[in-house]
């Protein structure tokens, strides 16, 4: 058995002509909470989309639970995806289904369990995320925090081995955000999941992370524990931690060129 749930080797990706990720390598151990951080445009969302197999890389390999996701048959990938849960930033609940139906959807599509069992399993997960009693509401009737919790419930309904969360606490008030952090910790403790969280919320990252990976302009700037990152004396990391704004060094010629938009 491998001790790494996810292994990324030399991942290079482009968006059109622009290179987004530049030779990213990262190992995520089984059972840890890895937080991927970085400012806007650092490539962290792109990185997540590649881990989920939604984008195809220019070069490099991503292996999840020991399988190279760009080199397996669609059928194998389909089975692999049943072992992965994803909570998207905006929830991405299907708006035509009720909250309960959304949470039951993976079970309905991938298992042959009877309706009664599926309902019970869905309610169990709704208890975990403290959403019980809301199963008959439509996603549009929920608040932001409830949507994120419902998305988490749907992500864990198949008891996945790996859970991905995209900005789980973004745009929520501090109390609700803290609840969601607790929930992620609880999931890791209780169900032994490997959790990958993409966020730019420092507080939340420090609270839940076993290890943190900082992406910057498509490069891995740092990988290490919370203690290690706090001690780091890399200027860009310190800027990120202390919320300092950065001034790019100005090249006068470059600046004039940009203003006049000349070639």
């Amino acid at each position: 058995m491998t001790t790494n749930a996810i292994e990324v080797k030399n991942l290079v990706t482009h968006y059109g002509e622009t290179q987004v990720l530049n030779n990213v390598s990262l190992d995520i151990k089984t059972g840890e909470i890895m937080v991927i951080m970085g400012g806007s445009g650092s490539g962290k969302s792109t990185f997540l989309n590649h881990l989920l197999g939604l984008l195809y890389p220019t070069s490099g390999a991503i292996s999840i639970l020991g399988q190279d996701i760009n080199d397996i048959t669609p059928m194998e990938f389909q089975f692999l995806r049943r072992k992965i849960g994803v909570a998207f930033q905006g929830g991405a609940l299907l708006s035509s289904l009720t909250v309960g139906e959304n949470i039951m959807l993976p079970l309905k599509e991938h298992t042959k369990l009877d309706r009664m069992t599926i309902e019970i399993m869905a309610r169990l997960k709704m208890e975990v995320v403290e959403l019980s009693g809301f199963e008959n509401l439509m996603p549009s009737e929920l608040s932001g925090g409830m949507i994120k919790r419902a998305a988490l419930a749907r992500a864990i309904v198949m008891d996945p081995k790996i859970l991905f969360c995209d900005e789980p606490s973004a745009g929520l008030d501090p109390v609700v955000a803290s609840n969601i952090d607790d929930l992620i910790l609880k999931l890791k403790e209780a169900l032994g999941m490997t959790v990958v969280v993409v966020t730019h919320e420092l507080e939340s990252a420090f609270k839940i992370a076993d290890r943190i990976c900082v992406l910057d302009k498509g490069n891995v700037l740092f990988v290490g524990t919370v203690e290690e990152i706090k001690k780091s004396n890399n200027k860009r990391i310190q800027n990120l931690l202390n919320r300092r704004s950065e001034k790019e060094e100005l090249d006068p010629d470059e600046y004039i060129k940009r203003l006049t938009a000349s070639e």
């Binding site: 989309n49 939604l54 389909q78 995806r81 994803v86 998207f88 991405a92 609940l93 708006s95 993976p106």
Partner: peptide
Amino acid sequence: AKLGTMTINQEIDALNVMGI
């Protein structure tokens, strides 16, 4: 309209990652 809304809300991505 349905597919368009689902695309911008990442619902299509969500279906994909659920293996649907």
